[in-house]
Computed example of a mutant assay.
Amino acid sequence: MLTILQLIVDTAASVVGGVLLLRFWMQVIRVRPPASVAQFTFTLTDWLVRPLRRVLPGVGGYDWASLIGAFLVVLLASCVLLLAGASGQTVLLVALFRFLNWIIYGFMGLLIIEVIFSWINPHAPLAPFVHALNDPLLRPLRRLIPPVGGLDLSVLVALILLQIVKYLLGQAFFF
């Protein structure tokens, strides 16, 4: 029964936290989401972001309430998943590790979605939005890695680099 609760909590936290991170990233790169994405994002996250904005106003042009909200969600989920028996420091480290993993997996997911769009329908309504979300990651790689036979390998390189970061992160947290 406990694992079912953990599954539900982890899934709900991952969805809400992922959308909060998406909201933060959209604001960082100044991309305007399509109406359906915007409505979904704001409807799912306003309950947390609006109250946090009273305490954490945007500084430097960034929506810190969304980012901190995502961390609070992962922290709360980590408390529930670890339940009793874990020290506060352990819960905080696990939450930080999971938070950074969410960020890495979010970028990986966006890259995979862009690849799927490029294969299936590059003119899909969401394709320019996903491309804009990935552009800050891929632009530096595209300067270094020219297309090979007309194929853009920068997405593959980005995915490999994200896997390396994820591996190093796991090594740093759990020697």
Results as ranks from 00 to 15, higher is better:
Trp64Gln: 13
Trp25Met: 03
Gln89Ser: 14
Val130Cys: 08
Asn101Asp: 15
Ala127Gly: 09
Asp63Glu: 12
Trp64Val: 14
Glu114Trp: 01
Gly88Trp: 15
Leu100Asp: 13
Thr43Gly: 01
Gly18Cys: 06
Val130Gln: 09
Val49Gln: 13
Asp63His: 06
Leu138Glu: 03
Asp46Ala: 02
Leu96Tyr: 03
Ala77Met: 12
Ala124His: 15
Leu20Lys: 10
Pro128Gln: 07
Phe71Ile: 15
Leu76Trp: 12
Val15Gly: 07
Thr43His: 05
Ala38Leu: 09
Ile145Val: 14
Gly69Ile: 09
Leu126Asn: 10
Val74His: 07
Ala77Tyr: 01
Leu100Phe: 06
Ser118Asp: 05
Leu83Arg: 08
Asp135Tyr: 10
Trp119Val: 14
Phe42Gln: 09
Leu137Pro: 13
Phe99Val: 15
Gln89Gly: 10
Cys79Lys: 08
Leu126Cys: 07
His131Thr: 11
Ser36Asp: 15
Glu114Thr: 01
Ala95Asp: 13
Pro147Glu: 01
Arg30Asp: 08
Gly58Thr: 04
Ser78His: 04
Gly109Tyr: 02
His131Met: 08
Gly61Met: 07
Ile104Met: 10
Ile68Thr: 09
Thr43Ile: 00
Trp47Glu: 09
Ala127Val: 05
Pro128Ser: 09
Pro122His: 06
Leu133Asn: 04
Leu111Thr: 07
Trp25Val: 04
Phe107Lys: 00
Gly85Gln: 05
Arg50Thr: 07
Ile120Asp: 05
Leu44Lys: 01
Ile103His: 10
Leu144Met: 14
Trp119Leu: 15
Gly69Lys: 11
Gly88Pro: 15
Arg142Lys: 06
Phe117Ser: 09
Leu100Met: 14
His123Cys: 04
Pro51Glu: 10
Ser118Cys: 06
Gly109Trp: 02
Leu81Asn: 08
Leu44Cys: 11
Met108Ser: 14
Arg50His: 12
Pro33Val: 03
Leu52Gly: 08
Ile29Phe: 10
Leu96Ala: 15
Ala70Val: 11
Pro136Asp: 06
Val37Cys: 01
Leu92Cys: 07
Gly149Asn: 01
Ala95Pro: 15
Trp119Gln: 06
Leu22Ala: 11
Ala124Asp: 15
Val19Lys: 03
Leu92Ile: 09
Leu83Glu: 00
Pro122Thr: 00
Val80Gln: 01
Leu93Cys: 02
Ser78Pro: 06
Asn134Val: 07
Ala65Gln: 11
Arg32Tyr: 03
Met108Cys: 11
Gly85Tyr: 05
Leu82Cys: 09
Trp102Gly: 05
Leu81Asp: 02
Gly61Gln: 03
Pro146Gln: 07
Phe129Trp: 06
Ala124Val: 02
Asp135Ile: 00
Val80Pro: 04
Gly109Gln: 07
Leu21Ala: 02
Gln39Ile: 00
Ser87Pro: 10
Arg143Thr: 13
Arg143Asn: 08
Ala77Ser: 14
Asp135Arg: 13
Pro128Tyr: 04
Leu44Tyr: 05
Ser66Ile: 11
Tyr105Asn: 11
Ala35Ile: 01
Tyr62Ala: 15
Ala77Phe: 02
Val55Ala: 12
Gly88Met: 10
Trp64Asp: 14
Asn121Leu: 06
Phe129Pro: 04
